[in-house]
């Protein structure tokens, strides 16, 4: 019984850590701009696909990973410069549609540049399962969980200990006021896209050995990441992590104890319930109505 439960837990942790990492990127851009970037999943895809194709071409893994992160960041910067920056003063919905357009564009570009097949990366530290009280976990899952932990720590340090990070936070609270005290709002927005693209690529690289990657793999990860970020409370990095883990665990436990056909539905029902009682998510800022 316990071994069974533990295995569900491991399964949930594996998926949950992936969702969490995907959700973090949403949180960062939301913080800087109040915008949900629906192209976030595409950053994950670009990271995974770049690394996988480079490794397949004979590049050493570490170099392929490094290049994948750079490529994704450049795409993030280009997206902000070419599509978001010109529409900075528009409605949030308008910018959201722009990001949906961007995700369609990037997916289309990926199938032209690469192909429509699935690609994989070798696991970073072997494929021997780790056994624990009758349950098993793949080492790569630990890489995913570790990356999430590292990312959240790095983000905490960045937003609370560096001047630029603080400036980004300030901008999210009040753009005009931030501008008035001399914060370059433009630069903050650019940095937030670069940062979330980087995080997306990290996610793409560490999850590819588990889930594989293809030009379409960003869709599901983006959707789950968005769910994680909203459940946790938009703009909260910790919230995105907790939200992702909850979604992953609910799915695993639901398939284990209830119905695997309805596990996704059950996860969404849980999210709906949480939102009914906590309309700003688990760790979200309480919304203040401007009258």
């Amino acid at each position: 019984m316990f071994a069974e439960f533990l295995q569900y837990l491991f399964s949930g942790l594996t998926s949950g850590a992936i969702y969490a990492l995907a959700g973090l990127g949403f949180a960062i851009i939301y913080n800087a701009s109040n915008v949900i970037n629906f192209a976030q999943g595409e950053f994950i895809m670009i990271g995974g696909m770049t690394a996988a194709s480079l490794v397949a071409a004979g590049t050493p893994l570490w170099l392929a990973v490094a290049l994948a992160l750079v490529v994704a960041m450049l795409v993030g910067i280009a997206l902000e410069r070419l599509a978001i920056e010109p529409a900075r003063d528009s409605d949030v919905v308008t910018i959201v549609i722009i990001t949906i357009g961007a995700s369609i564009f990037l997916r289309g570009a990926a199938q032209v540049i690469w192909d429509k097949e699935f690609h994989s990366l070798p696991a970073f530290s072997g494929e021997t399962p780790i056994a624990l009280s009758g349950a098993t976990l793949m080492p790569q899952s630990l890489w995913v969980i570790g990356s999430s932990a590292l990312a959240i720590a790095a983000l905490w340090w960045f937003f609370n200990r560096t001047l630029f990070g603080k400036a980004m936070l300030a901008t999210s609270h009040n753009r005009l006021a931030a501008q008035l005290v001399g914060i370059g709002v433009k630069r903050v927005l650019l940095a937030s896209f670069a940062l979330s693209a980087l995080l997306g690529a990290v996610a793409g690289v560490v999850v590819t050995p588990i889930t594989f990657t293809s030009y379409e793999s960003g869709i599901m990860l983006g959707l789950k990441g968005f769910s994680a970020a909203v459940l946790g409370g938009l703009g909260s990095g910790l919230g995105a992590i907790v939200g992702g883990l909850i979604v992953g665990l609910v799915e695993a436990l639901a398939s284990g104890y209830l119905s695997s056909a309805y596990k996704d539905a059950i996860a969404f029902i849980i999210i709906l319930f949480v939102l009914f009682f906590m309309p700003s998510g688990l760790f979200g800022r309480r919304g203040t109505d401007r009258v």
Binding site: P86, S90, I97, I98, G101, I104, F105, G108, Q111
Partner: peptide, 21 residues
């Protein structure tokens, strides 16, 4: 054909950038 998605995405972005309303 294969460029369909890219063009569709670009048109969506372009429209919203130049005609935000």
């Amino acid at each position: 054909e294969q460029y369909e998605a890219m063009i569709l995405g670009a048109i969506m972005m372009g429209t919203m950038i130049f005609m935000p309303k």
